[in-house]
Amino acid sequence: MLKKLLKYDWILMWRIPAMINLFLVVITLLGIIFLLSPAWQMDDSDSMFFFLTKMLLTFFYIIFLIAGSITIMVYIAVRYYKNIYTDEGYLTNTLPADPWQIVLSKLLVSSVWILITGILVVLSILSLVAANLITMEYATLEDLFIAIPELFGLIADEIDLPGPIIILISIFSAILGSMLNVLIIFSSIALGQLFSKHRVAGAFLWYILQYVIIQFANNLLLNLPVVYYSEHLSYHDSEIITRALWSGQMLGSILLSGLLFFLTEILLRKNLNLE
């Protein structure tokens, strides 16, 4: 059943996130082309027009990146709400599927899109920084290809963990972070249903409240190991502190994700009240 739900959630959802991500790719490519073009390399010290144009293009690029990321989140929220709690919910909630399967399917599909968008945003920024470094003649493409693994090696030395482990932890953290973001949205919508009226506004309020609480709890969990280790260790034991921070963050994210999934599922199972 989960496989079928995943299939249809993917089919019903892929278009808009794919368009947003395509848009991000296009503006990144345009950015790279522009950065590498002679126009960008022109000296703008005497021309206010060139200076303003560069500033505006940079400004719009940042705005588009932020807007793309936010639009994905909003779209996920709207799709989840519509598919479960509005007219479409009359079909979704009468399918012979367990509520946990319905939530898990939407969680996985949404997380994949958040992850893809996140990766694209990071790659977009890195590409433009690289293009700018090349344009400014601070580095060549070859230099960058050498510098990136070196930088990665430095991080690995600092943390004192093998490179592949760091890659695995980073991938796991990114997946976990995406799922946590989605679960904050899903659980807020589920909690909004506890209101007898204005359930969308209720969901929005829950989102803000949850966001604040989760940030606070996450920071607390992040800082506990630091506080503990700082009493026992010196500044030179930074790799232990970094590892403790990672562990704390991941453990916190896993616990919070589990809690929010459980909350979302139980509210769907025990408190469904379609208007």
Binding site: L12, D87, E88, G89, Y90, L91, T94, L95, P96, A97, D98
Partner: peptide, 19 residues
């Protein structure tokens, strides 16, 4: 009401639930 009942009930609501 649950998975077992939903697999045996065919329900037509008073509204359109199809996208």
């Amino acid at each position: 009401p649950g998975v077992a009942s939903k697999s045996r009930i065919s329900y037509l609501p008073e509204r359109t639930y199809l996208q």
